[in-house]
Amino acid sequence: MSWYRERLLDPALITAGVVVVVKGVGYPTVPVGGLRRGGYVNVADDVTTRCLHEALTGRDGFPRVRVRWSLCPSVCHTVIWGDEPPRDDEDDVAQGRFYGYSEEAINRFVEELAHSTRPRESQETGSSACSSTSRTNSKRL
């Protein structure tokens, strides 16, 4: 959760977050609140996806929990909550603000991205293996 603490505009949201443990693996989740309007977790398998969906549904701070199922076996599923993210996947600033990151964290991410040729990583899991579900799943803010 320290990753979020360093980047969120309102780090107090972390105390309302939950770590969902499935098959011995912890999946940190941060609720909506303040300027944070949504969140997600990329998941590699159906069972974990269903467990996360069930664990977050009905929990305060996790409105409209839903699953974006991948049609491709090599791409992860995504458990999503809150509002729909901005449609413009290319607008990293709008994406960062939607997920409640500080302007400093957003600017740092945009600057690092401009100087990087590495593929983007998934925001919630930190794994590039699951990042191709959509470009909105970018990390390193």
Rank of each mutant, 00 (worst) to 15 (best):
R87Y: 02
I106K: 00
P73R: 10
V75F: 01
N107Q: 14
S74K: 13
R87N: 09
D83A: 15
E103H: 09
R97F: 01
S74D: 10
S74Q: 12
D83P: 05
G100D: 09
R97K: 12
R97I: 06
E104G: 06
G100N: 14
P73E: 01
A105Y: 00
H77W: 09
S70R: 12
V79S: 01
V79I: 07
Y101V: 05
V79A: 10
I106L: 03
T78R: 10
P86Q: 06
G96H: 01
A105C: 07
T78V: 15
D88Q: 10
G82Q: 10
E90K: 11
H77N: 15
D83F: 05
E103D: 15
E103S: 14
D83W: 03
R97G: 02
P73D: 12
Q95V: 01
T78D: 04
F98W: 07
G96Y: 00
Q95A: 12
L71Q: 12
A94W: 06
D89W: 02
E103W: 02
D91E: 07
D91I: 02
D88V: 08
I106P: 03
I106M: 04
S70I: 06
G96W: 00
P86A: 05
C76I: 00
D92F: 07
A105P: 03
Y99Q: 05
Q95N: 12
S102H: 00
C76G: 15
D83E: 15
V79L: 05
R87V: 07
D83S: 12
V79D: 06
W81Y: 05
P86S: 04
W81D: 00
G100K: 08
W81R: 12
P85A: 12
D83G: 03
L71P: 01
G96C: 03
D91M: 09
E84N: 10
L71F: 05
H77I: 07
H77C: 03
V75D: 05
F98C: 00
E84D: 15
D83Y: 06
W81M: 02
I106D: 00
R97T: 10
P85E: 06
G100P: 08
Y101E: 11
